[in-house]
Design a protein around this nucleic acid. Structure first.
Lengths: 344, 344
DNA sequence: TATTAGCACTCGCAATAATTGAGTGCTAAC
DNA sequence: GTTAGCACTCAATTATTGCGAGTGCTAATA
């Protein structure tokens, strides 16, 4: 759908204005704000056209107009450009990261913090997943009696804890032996390919030990399959300041979203084209709870491989420019610092 | 402060009624509800007395009366009794726990779930702390380059992860050696008493290794000191249904409380007399954010030693009877299952 | 033909007024 | 000591009104 230059300009000003004020914008205000030197009457005509085209609606007869979702989509696709952040803000962010990259968890929560602060919306950050494919070391630690902790370490140096109960008691020495067996195995192949047959071929095991390994491997596989990457979120209350959230039900919806970490995680991690910045407006979201929100996400990488995602949730009347710019910069920073942290 | 039987009865009915309806209660309603066979006029007189004594207030002249904090305190201390839960509910809870005691984290989140469901308020559960004193094993796992993960295991079989960056690279073999050194040490004494001198006395260490141990120990000590016991909370949105939470600011306050896990943790873990069920009403709470809320907490134990706490946050107009009963029963269940889970 | 001034009309919003009703305190009688 | 009766209070609801920002349409203008 193409709009002529003037309609485009008018639509742009309306959206910008509405994003700032949350008030329907009328023809008089508009004629003053956009200095195209056209009268309110002309603008009214144009607005009527834009309404017919589905870009604007009137909350009630004889009020100003507000943008539709379609308008936001048009704005995002055809009008707005991702700005470079101000020098000062850039260095601020950069310094902040320097102080928070001693530990992965810290980096993640700091990212969420910065995101929500810079955008004034609710930020969500997905920590990298620990999966099957890149697991380089497993350490089994005896907890008590027949309970053990399995620590899985990835090639990139991330760790994940898995706590399980086994059929026999495992003491410190046995735990060490089991670790060694599994790690010996990992030298040649990956966990997902460790079958019963292969386990039985291992020489140095007593029957009891072999049985334990047989128990352990499925637990490991299962835990690595289920993609429960950690989710950090911040700035929930940021949204409360926007007029669209004076309604308690809207707030409930939001809290439900943020608490369903599983859903959030799946949604953000799902690939969708090659866009660096991904914008979902209102009903473009599959999740029912998100139909009234917009969510802008991006991903961070290590060696070109997607590691995790992060983003911002807000009203559909969101400052798409600013959020995109911020996400874009943070993405670069995150890539930089993550690769420093998890350098091979 | 003593009240005569009739005043006590009237106060009780007012509180019960107000807890149920959230409406100020007037003399007419009251005279019907409590079948003492006294007229509204008499009740008015009694109510006037109770107001003078500080138990009731009128939101405005010529409306019914509502209980003050003092009234709730009196109710909790002198009137209410902790009921035994219905048989059916008891067995339900019991069964639920049976399914969720394979892992400590699971037990904790399940407890929060059950609490919020049974009370319809917001539930908070503090997982057991992993401290200095009962640490029986430390496993150091090489992550990548000079980053290691330290897993601390307590006597009771709980584990805690600590991730640190050291001055030198640590590979798998070195990690094992360092673990052994520290564990050898732990056989004789506790971590907090491991001083520089003692480290230097360890024979089998190269200078580089000794240096690493010198770095590790303070990290361990520090991590074990800072009491960041995990906090599970559920049912945040439960409270939104109560009329006192139609105000967005109240909700903000609540969210702030629940998010400040540090504060919550300190508050709940602090001892305060020997009460099994601890009730803090409104301004009885030290925390500024909690002044408008009531919080009822209890603790769970292992071998008579306090391990953690759990409780419920709600409006001061809270169903103190029910919550106390539930907490009382959950406490028993939790003690039972935790001791099964962490049995020595 | 595109633009604009003018005008009657619409409708949400805020302020004001009128009405209702649940509840009180006080007094006098029981 | 208790109660019926009555005048009074005041929040909450509903109705009324005026205002103002905004619109669509029409006719005049460039």
């Amino acid at each position: 759908m193409e709009l002529n230059a003037r309609k485009k300009k008018i639509l742009e000003v309306i959206i910008r204005d509405y994003i700032n004020t949350a008030e329907p914008v009328g023809s008089r205000t508009l004629s003053k704000r956009c200095n195209l030197g056209i009268s309110p009457a002309t603008i009214r005509n144009e607005m009527a056209d834009l309404e017919e085209l589905g870009f604007l609606v009137q909350p009630h007869t004889s009020s100003g107009r507000i943008p539709t979702q379609q308008a936001y989509r048009y704005y995002v696709d055809e009008i707005m450009e991702i700005q470079k952040l101000e020098k000062m803000i850039r260095t601020d962010i950069h310094r902040g990261f320097l102080d928070h990259t001693t530990e992965l968890g810290l980096t993640m929560s700091h990212t969420a913090q910065v995101l929500s602060q810079l955008t004034n919306y609710t930020a969500v950050v997905l920590a990298p997943r620990v999966t099957n494919f890149n697991c380089k070391h497993v350490q089994i630690v005896s907890l008590i009696k027949n309970r053990v902790l399995m620590v899985v370490v990835t090639q990139e140096g991330m760790a994940k804890n898995i706590e399980v109960t086994l059929s026999h008691e495992v003491d410190t020495i046995l735990a060490l032996k089991l670790s060694n067996v599994i790690n010996g195995f990992l030298k040649n192949t990956v966990l997902s390919e460790m079958s019963s047959d292969l386990i039985d071929q291992i020489q140095e095991l007593s029957p009891a030990e072999s049985k334990l390994i047989h128990e352990i491997i499925p637990h490991l596989k299962k835990a690595l399959m289920e993609d429960a990457s950690e989710v950090h979120s911040t700035g929930l209350t940021n949204l409360f300041n926007y007029p669209e959230f004076s309604d308690v039900n809207k707030i409930k919806q939001l809290i439900n979203i943020v608490q369903e970490k599983q859903v959030l995680s799946e949604m953000m991690a799902s690939k969708d084209g090659n866009q660096v910045i991904r914008i979902k407006i209102g009903s473009e979201n599959d999740n029912e709870n998100l139909k009234d929100f917009s969510i802008i996400t991006s991903t961070y990488e290590l060696d070109g491989e997607m590691m995790g995602a992060f983003g911002v949730i807000g009203p559909t009347r969101m400052n798409y420019d600013n959020v995109s710019s911020v996400l874009n910069y943070i993405r670069n920073e995150l890539n930089l610092h993550i690769s420093n942290l998890l350098m091979k």
